[in-house]
Simulated scan of single mutants.
Amino acid sequence: MQRLKGIDDLEELTSITNCERRKTLRQVLQSKQCLRIIEAHSPISAMIAEKTRVMVNDDCLAYDGFWCSSLTDSLLQAKPDIEILDVNFRLKNIHNIFDVTTKPMIYDADTGGKIEHLIHDVRALERAGVSMIVIEDKTGLKKNSLLGNDVEQKQDDIESFCEKISMAKKSQNTQEFMVAARIESLILDKGLEDALIRADAYVNAGADAVLIHSRKRSGDEIMEFASRFRAIHPTVPLMCVPTSYSHLHYQELKDMGFNIIIYANHMMRSAISSMESVAKSILSEGCSEHIERDCISVKQALAFIPGTI
């Protein structure tokens, strides 16, 4: 199958300890200017992401790690995206992903919850081999950020969120574990100045990286944020999630000064689309012949996992 070229014959994965995996995100950040991170919601999606290689202008391109999305973890369980899944539940899926992959993971921690809970969550995720958690500066019942002000969302005050960052950093046991602060000012239409003030405060509170989030399609506001942030913090890793401004190329975002680009939900969204198409086709056509060309063969599926056949 042409669309699976390069990952049909999966080689045996090299084993890696949790400690070794946790260190790799900082190591890759030091060696590469900008990382590509993709959402993985299951072991098979993570294996596909890890093994995918594409040649572009004589460069072999690959993903640098995984994003553990609270949205896609919730969708996988057909649960509402309101922080309904606790860390222990999500950790089971992470352990299964880590069993068959080697790349580092960034964990979407939503608001981080109560500080008392966050402290224990940081330690559990760190022990499991997660490299970074991202906490967003909102409070109350979680609502998806891309809904913006169409739903009620409340941003945390700066002092309170700085305390959350500080306590998360104090609770970790290793130097390589990272805590990133996700700023929701642009999502909630509070403006660029508010976002920059918060970014400076969060870095001073100990955040290892800053994720600026935006739902505007043009990408202009994240470009301006990146420019002004870099003037103040030239070495702090800067992250973005280009779901709304998906037309912006990796190279453009890299040139703006972003160090980590997260493709946050595309593996799950494409899987849902494909499954819906297959289910509808079998019903409407009365047989599965018409969708066979869009599926790998059973033999390929069995061969996809090393040791199956």
Rank of each mutant, 00 (worst) to 15 (best):
F177P: 01
D110P: 02
H266V: 09
D86Q: 04
S74G: 09
I165L: 00
N173C: 08
V241D: 06
E126C: 08
I305K: 11
D121W: 11
L302W: 08
M132A: 07
I272R: 07
D110V: 05
N265R: 11
H117L: 07
D121K: 09
L91H: 02
Q77C: 12
M239L: 14
K92C: 08
T139W: 00
D81L: 02
R198L: 04
G148N: 00
A226E: 03
D81V: 07
H95A: 10
A226W: 00
A231N: 14
D255T: 10
P237Y: 12
K143D: 05
I48D: 02
A168T: 03
Q2Y: 08
T235Y: 06
K299V: 13
N88H: 11
A181L: 01
M239A: 03
I291F: 06
K254D: 05
R198Y: 01
H41Q: 07
I119K: 15
C240T: 15
L4M: 14
V100N: 05
S281T: 15
S145H: 15
A181G: 02
Y63W: 08
V203F: 00
F177V: 03
L188G: 09
S171P: 08
G307S: 10
I232V: 14
H233V: 00
T243E: 10
V179Q: 03
G148H: 08
L283D: 13
S185M: 01
C287T: 15
S297M: 09
P104V: 02
L302C: 11
S42I: 05
P80M: 06
D189I: 05
Y107T: 00
D194A: 14
Q155G: 06
H95F: 10
I48F: 08
K23F: 03
K79V: 13
S145F: 15
I106Y: 00
I115L: 11
I38P: 01
M132V: 02
V122R: 05
T102C: 13
I296K: 05
K169A: 03
I305T: 12
L71Y: 06
T24P: 01
T139R: 11
V54N: 03
N204T: 07
R230G: 03
C60T: 10
K79S: 10
E152Q: 12
M239G: 05
A181M: 01
I232F: 10
A301S: 10
H233I: 00
H120Y: 13
S284R: 14
M167C: 13
Q300V: 05
I305Y: 13
L283K: 15
V179W: 02
R127M: 10
A49V: 13
K79F: 12
Y250D: 03
I183F: 02
S31I: 11
I37F: 06
K142Y: 12
D200M: 01
R269F: 12
V203I: 15
D110E: 15
E184F: 03
E159H: 09
H266W: 14
A181Y: 01
A180L: 01
E276Y: 11
F66N: 01
R217W: 07
T17F: 03
G148A: 06
E285I: 08
D81W: 07
I133H: 05
K143M: 13
R36S: 10
N173F: 00
L186T: 01
W67N: 05
Y245I: 02
H213T: 00
G257A: 04
V54M: 09
